[in-house]
Design a binder for these strands. Structure first.
Length: 197
DNA sequence: GCCAACGTTGGC
DNA sequence: GCCAACGTTGGC
């Protein structure tokens, strides 16, 4: 899970973005993730995101975060949208993303782009609000859009060819930072105005 | 809490 | 470069 932790100024301790100590037998060291870290592993995505030919990738995103307490190596990873709101400037630095692809998406994000704030690994997973990138609270969703509801649409759209037919939330599971097409983004926004299905 | 899915590690 | 073991994510 991405652990968006507000960057506590000095506090860091052993928590470089990529620093998972030598737990277990895995000890091959990872590259310290400099910004320079190369696109290495990240084969260019074949998703719709990369089809925007000339222009850069997606402008819309979905970011997962856990709203319920859970200890990971002694540290609580809880970070809900309420926690984001409570930050200075309602803004948090999004670190702790380990997955290469998710990290590459993180780098591709540009200031001010919009993203859904998704609550994962919790009682009722779903989209809680809107943020803009670097990561600042924008607003709550007018109603909580649950995973179950999104999935219903996703499944319908697979057969009808609707806007969520390729949604990464379902096709790329475990990706904690993911691009959305504008169609996906708009469709999900439009759900706010409707009765939960 | 369980466990499926899947990414990562690292020996070979 | 394969692939088994292991770790993590995240729904249920």
């Amino acid at each position: 899970m991405p652990k968006p932790r507000k960057r506590l100024a000095g506090a860091a301790g052993p928590t470089g973005p990529d620093n998972k100590g030598p737990a277990g037998k895995r000890t091959k060291t990872k590259n310290p993730v400099g910004t320079s870290a190369t696109l290495g592993n990240s084969s260019p995505e074949k998703t719709s995101a990369s089809k925007n030919c000339g222009k850069n990738l997606s402008s819309y995103w979905l970011m997962k975060s856990e709203p319920e307490s859970r200890l990971e190596k002694g540290v609580d990873v809880k970070f809900s949208i309420e926690d984001l709101k409570a930050q200075p400037k309602q803004t948090a630095c999004w670190d702790g993303v380990r997955n290469y692809q998710a990290r590459n998406f993180l780098r591709a994000m540009q200031l001010g782009q919009e993203a859904f704030f998704y609550h994962s690994n919790c009682k009722e997973p779903g989209i809680a609000g809107l943020v803009k990138v670097d990561v600042q609270f924008v607003r709550m969703m007018k109603r909580y859009i649950t995973l179950a509801e999104l999935k219903t649409h996703y499944q319908a759209h697979k057969t009808t060819g609707g806007p969520l037919k390729n949604m990464a939330l379902f096709t790329r599971q475990r990706l904690s930072v993911q691009p959305l097409t504008r169609e996906e983004f708009d469709f999900i926004l439009s759900l706010e105005e409707k009765e939960p299905s």
